[in-house]
């Protein structure tokens, strides 16, 4: 379980990004985080991943303060899928995914178990045919699946994704969302940020709406993502209200 208590955060010489945010993320649930650009969604994810410096005793993982964990311990609990990975070196898909086993495999070589797990996960995200292809040469959707596979081999209980469908075409977005939903059905907790309320509805679970650093709504996705909530969250003019009519009112 991830517990955030009264969290405020500001970057060096910048304004406050998150303000007195408190939330509990339970194992096995899907949590969609929505909000406009710069509202603090990615910052929130990076904080719970321990990637940004915070005040002590504001984030707890399984009851223990985040700052007490070592990096390799956190990697067993939380796996991260970044928005994009613009690599320089052309690792193969298999090599990229195997990297997710590093913290679990301290010896200088990967074990047969690591290799087996990698093959299983590649199959699960339907990438086994691409295992020997260069990561830099596959499509955007496939790249995102590689990053998900790399996170899955970490065997952690939370999968934390920063705008996983960003930059993908419409078809690939839903293919990827389907895989994410399948992963959620296996009991894996998924915390993701998205700019698309309709995708949050597609994934279901719970939604957190963040505006100007404040948590303005928290509840079941199908109940809190309403036309009214969306127009207020993104400061849409009333004339555009009709555009959001496919959400419940």
């Amino acid at each position: 379980m991830i517990e955030v208590r009264d969290l405020s955060f500001s970057y060096h010489r910048g304004g406050q990004i998150l303000k007195n945010l408190s939330v509990v993320l339970a194992p096995g649930e899907v949590v969609n985080i929505l909000g406009s650009n710069g509202c603090g969604k990615t910052t929130f994810l990076k904080i719970i991943l321990g990637l940004l410096p915070i005040e002590p005793a504001t984030v707890f993982i399984n009851g223990q303060p985040l700052e007490q964990f070592k990096r390799h311990q956190l990697a067993h609990l939380l796996a991260y899928v970044p928005q994009a990975h613009n690599g320089i070196f052309n690792y193969t898909v298999r090599e990229m995914v195997l990297m997710g086993r590093t913290s679990a495999s301290p010896w200088y070589r990967f074990s047969a178990e690591d290799e087996k797990k990698t093959r299983t996960v590649l199959k699960r995200v339907r990438l086994n045919a691409l295992a020997d292809r260069s990561y830099l040469e596959i499509s955007g959707g496939e790249k995102q699946l590689v990053l998900i596979a790399r996170a899955l081999v970490q065997d952690s209980s939370f999968l934390i994704m920063d705008e996983p469908v960003n930059g993908l075409d419409y078809g690939n977005q839903f293919r990827l969302l389907t895989i994410i939903r399948e992963l959620a059905d296996t009991g894996l907790a998924i915390v993701l940020t998205t700019h698309h309320p309709e995708q949050a509805v597609f994934l279901g679970g719970r939604a957190l709406l963040i505006k100007n650093g404040h948590l303005v709504a928290d509840g079941p996705t199908d109940q809190i993502i309403t036309a009214d909530a969306v127009t207020r969250l993104y400061d849409l003019p009333p004339a555009l209200l009709d555009q959001t009519k496919h959400f419940a009112s």
Partner: peptide, 23 residues
């Protein structure tokens, strides 16, 4: 020479390396 595995992770950039469990 024996730490190629860790070097691979570091070549992914700081943020990803940390998320993958490397200081």
């Amino acid at each position: 020479v024996l730490n190629g595995k860790v070097l691979n992770i570091l070549s992914q950039g700081d943020e990803e390396a940390r998320a993958l469990g490397i200081e």
